[in-house]
C-alpha cells in the first residue's frame, strides 16, 4: 500500500499525461461545459461525472478528437494534441457506447481485428483475454448468438490485450454483471499502478482507490441548469 502511494506521487512530479486548458464544448449553440482546467497524471483513474446530457460523452469524444471543434486546449505530455496526434493515438484505447463488435464475426475474429488497429496480438493472447472476461468456450461462436453483456465483454477484453497508456471508456459498466465490474475495477487499479491512466464515465460510483472526479456540473455554461441555452457563445 505504502509502495503504491509513493509510486503514484513519483509520477505526479512529472508532466501530466493530459492537460485540459480552459477546455469547453458548445453544441448547437448550447454551452455544455466551459473553462475546464484539469490535469491527468500517470496513475490516475478519473471518473467524469454529471447527469444525463451534461456532455460526458462529448468530453470523451473531444478528448479522442473524434469531435474536433472545442474551445481551449488539450495537451498530451505538454504538447498540443494536434501536434502530437500520432503519438497520442498510438497510446490511446477508446471504447465508446458502440464498441465496434461485428455480429457476423466470432469473438476471436473481432478481437483480432480490433487489436490489429494498434499493434498486433497473437492468437493465444486473444484467447487468454477472452478467458479473462469469461468467454472461454465462446471463441468461435458468431457474436449474434451472444447476449448484449457478452458482446460488451468482447470489447472489454481489449483492455487485457492493449499496450496503450490512456484508456478512455464511455460507460464501461453497461450490461456487465457485478462480478465483472469488480474485475474491471481491479484491472483499472492495476493499469494505473503500471503508470497508465483511465478516464471513464459511469452512473454508478466505481469502487476504486484514489479515484479522481471531474464533475461537469461545476463547469456547465456559467448557469447551474444543464439545459440552459446560451446564444452567440461561439467565438467564430
Amino acid at each position: 500500500m505504502a509502495a503504491l502511494t509513493t509510486h503514484s506521487t513519483d509520477h505526479k512530479t512529472n508532466t501530466a499525461l493530459l492537460t485540459f486548458k480552459q477546455f469547453g464544448c458548445t453544441r448547437d449553440s448550447r454551452v455544455l461545459f466551459e473553462g475546464i482546467d484539469f490535469d491527468i497524471y500517470a496513475g490516475d483513474v478519473v471518473q467524469v461525472e454529471g447527469p444525463n446530457g451534461t456532455g460526458k460523452t462529448t468530453l470523451l469524444r473531444a478528448l479522442t478528437r473524434l469531435l474536433p471543434d472545442y474551445e481551449g486546449e488539450i495537451l498530451w505530455r505538454g504538447k498540443t494534441l494536434s501536434h502530437a496526434h500520432y503519438d497520442f493515438l498510438s497510446q490511446l484505447l477508446f471504447i465508446g457506447h458502440l464498441p465496434g463488435i461485428k455480429k457476423t464475426l466470432t469473438p476471436r475474429e473481432n478481437l483480432a481485428f480490433l487489436s490489429s488497429l494498434n499493434g498486433t496480438s497473437t492468437l493465444s493472447d486473444i484467447d487468454d483475454a477472452l478467458a479473462q472476461v469469461g468467454l472461454y468456450g465462446y471463441e468461435d461462436m458468431p457474436c449474434y448468438q451472444l447476449s448484449a453483456g457478452q458482446n460488451r465483454r468482447i470489447a472489454l477484453a481489449r483492455l487485457y490485450l492493449t499496450k496503450a497508456l490512456v484508456w478512455v471508456l464511455d460507460e464501461p459498466y453497461t450490461a456487465v454483471d457485478v462480478a465483472g465490474i469488480k474485475k474491471l475495477e481491479a484491472l483499472f487499479e492495476y493499469h494505473a499502478k503500471q503508470g497508465g491512466c483511465v478516464i471513464l464515465t459511469s452512473h454508478q460510483p466505481p469502487n476504486i482507490r484514489d479515484l479522481k472526479h471531474l464533475s461537469l456540473t461545476d463547469y456547465s455554461g456559467g448557469d447551474s441548469s444543464s439545459a440552459s441555452v446560451i446564444e452567440g457563445a461561439y467565438d467564430e
Binding site: 477508446f94 458502440l98 465496434g100 488497429l117
Partner: peptide, 17 residues
C-alpha cells in the same frame, strides 16, 4: 453503414495508422 452503426468506424479513425 454497418461499420458506422456498430462503432467500428470510430475505431478505424482512432487507429494510429
Amino acid at each position: 453503414r454497418t461499420d458506422y452503426d456498430d462503432g467500428t468506424l470510430e475505431q478505424l479513425i482512432l487507429s494510429p495508422q
